[in-house]
């Protein structure tokens, strides 16, 4: 469904952030994108969404990501931003949730139904009419996920979905992600979460792919992870808190 072919990108001339990146993600696959801070994970997302454009070709369902196809492509992709403050721009959670469906021409009734279904799925009914600037960081993250699910995208892209969440909400997000049938691309430093939600992992290092393979193979490879400024997931490390 998603295909990167020799993609390179630099924010500033001469400092390339993504270098000759190629990979593809099949329909329904759940892929974790991991790597140290500044490895280029968020940039990969931005490239895919056409928020920035570089060299090379990016295909979504065979359609190249370019100016003409943007709206067609973006409709298929739901993106949860790394910073939820920047994602929610309407006064209330509810208004934010109906924003996308209405833009895509869904009727009021259908939108309403969708919003309620998503809120119930995430157990967030209580947040519906709350003001966006008056909810906590974690609640805002949950609400941001809800706004994206209300879009019913074909693929879900999440940038650090579990940062700032308490254990209960983190588990809730993990279960929600597992329950999604869509294609998933998730970046995170929370490798336990990646292990729980993804079948496949792409390890990014300085804008290049350092490893690409089954999640429980890569996430078990202590040497590989440590070479790229990461550690084994807690559940695999066999460490115990004394």
């Amino acid at each position: 469904m998603i295909e990167f072919q020799h993609v390179s990108f630099a924010y500033e001339r001469g400092r390339s952030v993504i270098e000759d990146l190629s990979f593809s993600i099949a329909d329904g696959e759940a892929v974790g994108l991991i790597g140290a801070n500044g490895a280029g994970k968020s940039t990969v997302m931005k490239l895919l969404l056409g928020l920035v454009s570089g060299e090379g070709t990016i295909l979504v369902d065979g359609v190249p990501v370019n100016r003409q196809n943007l709206s067609q492509i973006r409709r298929k992709l739901g993106f949860v931003l790394q910073n939820s403050d920047n994602q929610m721009f309407m006064p209330t959670v509810y208004e934010d949730m109906i924003f996308a469906p209405l833009n895509y021409g869904l009727s009021r009734e259908a939108t309403e139904a969708r919003v309620d279904a998503v809120l119930e799925q995430l157990g967030l009914q209580e947040l519906k009419h709350r003001h966006n600037h008056k909810i906590s960081g974690g609640e805002k993250r949950m609400a941001a996920i809800a706004t994206i699910l209300a879009m019913e995208p074909e693929a879900v892209l999440m940038d650090e979905p579990t940062s700032a969440l308490d254990p209960y909400n983190r588990r809730l997000v993990i279960n929600t992600i597992r329950g999604l049938k869509q294609t998933k691309l998730i970046t995170s430093h929370d490798l336990d979460m990646i292990l729980d939600t993804c079948d496949r992992v792409i390890l990014l290092s300085a804008g290049r792919i350092a490893a690409d393979g089954p999640a429980d193979q890569i996430l078990r490879d202590r040497e590989l992870l440590e070479a790229h400024r990461m550690e084994l997931p807690f559940c695999l490390a066999g460490r115990r808190l004394e």
């Binding site: 969404l49 928020l51 709206s71 973006r74 409709r75 992709l77 993106f79 931003l81 910073n83 403050d85 920047n86 994602q87 721009f89 208004e95 109906i98 924003f99 996308a100 209405l102 833009n103 895509y104 706004t147 879009m151």
Partner: peptide
């Protein structure tokens, strides 16, 4: 920066030129 991100977030959710006012 934030305005830019907000605006992208709108674009990514199907905004084009017109707001669909509730």
């Amino acid at each position: 920066d934030r305005a830019q991100e907000l605006y992208s977030s709108m674009l990514l959710r199907g905004y084009h030129e017109h707001f669909h006012y509730v």
